[in-house]
Design a protein around this nucleic acid. Sequence first.
DNA 1: GTATATTTGTGTATAAATAACACATAAATT
DNA 2: AATTTATGTGTTATTTATACACAAATATAC
Lengths: 229, 229
Amino acid sequence: MNPSRQHIQIAVDAVVFGYRSASGLSVLLIRRRFAPHAGAWALPGGFVRDHESLEEAVSRELEEETGVNIRYLEQLYTFGDADRDPRGRVVSVTYFALVKPENLRIFADSDAEETAWFDIQKLPELAFDHPRILKTAIERIRNKISYEPIGFELLEEKFPFADLHTLYETLRGAPIDRRNFKKKMMSLQILEESGERRKQAGSGRPAALYQFNKEKYFQLKEKGIVFEV
Amino acid sequence: MNPSRQHIQIAVDAVVFGYRSASGLSVLLIRRRFAPHAGAWALPGGFVRDHESLEEAVSRELEEETGVNIRYLEQLYTFGDADRDPRGRVVSVTYFALVKPENLRIFADSDAEETAWFDIQKLPELAFDHPRILKTAIERIRNKISYEPIGFELLEEKFPFADLHTLYETLRGAPIDRRNFKKKMMSLQILEESGERRKQAGSGRPAALYQFNKEKYFQLKEKGIVFEV
DNA sequence: GTATATTTGTGTATAAATAACACATAAATT
DNA sequence: AATTTATGTGTTATTTATACACAAATATAC
């Protein structure tokens, strides 16, 4: 019961997801400069300072280590097993974050890079218990996409409907009927056609661009209408 | 980045729920013996020791403070605002737990009691940020009851169907059609009729007693069949 | 510049799930 | 014996989900 005897450090780690319809879902990793696991890939994170909140700590670490502009941040889980860090007792509060493609730079193609995006199908070995953390995050985003409108945080501000469709197929890992998906999504009344059409990026009919209306979503939520896709 | 500079304590707190069809959902609280908030009601909890896991810390605190036999324990959320505890920086990893009615002793009727069950409709003032924690826990259990079979952890081992029905109505805060509810619940194939009937507890036709079959539930889950009520 | 390939856009018919609804039965109580 | 109280059960209507195919707009190949 005496807190002065405690020797536990508290850290935050973040699982940052990015997405492109071409390359699928990817996660931001950093290469550790110092021991333990120097040279290994790991989730961005670090120790919490005495006077900052947990969210401030994550934002600061992400800013410092990756320079990425975060659009969505949510607490994931707290990992506290006594042996998870060889330096001593470290409890890690983990977060998962989503970034838009503007922030998703080219994938690193060499070991020389310090931070890089990795396709979640082609992950390197990870330090500490980070594989477990990442697995938890992937489960979370897979589930959450169905009952919270977080998918939009992974797409451009204005996006063709096909991008949204492909995102859901990617996360579900299964094909979804295009017409039924559109019918359902549009019935939620949270998407607006922007009037613009996509600047051509290949052959095919030019797609209308849609936008997520967050205010509309909150209005409907207050009325008890739930997002469910 | 230097962990030796950190002065953050780590604690665990638990929201323990109990249920009786007569009295509804209740939560286990303790009266604090020491400052800060001496004499105030609070969630059971305490500081984590250097070599125990977070789950071990919760179990130990619950054992020490309340003697309650926990049947279900799940991490809830981690609260880490810099000013949440007047003693200094304390990050609290919170859990929510469920106990069966055998463990639910009579509600305390006087201030003299040290630990007591409170109907969640008639809560006393709570210390620290515990109102927020409790609110988070209530939201969690309300949602979770619909897609995980946790309700059974709040009922006796063998229960009449009406108890399950009333539990769901209580948590949802709305009436549920008795026939439709039974049809749906039975179609999940995770309940077994025990053959026994309830020892009479009032007038009315004697009810058959049912049992939750956890193994069956896991088997179905592996086949991809989901619990949803 | 015409034909072909590619992607977007849209509606209807069928099947499945959910919601609404009422009366008989077994026991306790009067 | 009559009444009260709680349990037990099935059918129909409504809503929601699923399956499915062809036309339109542009780029590309010839």
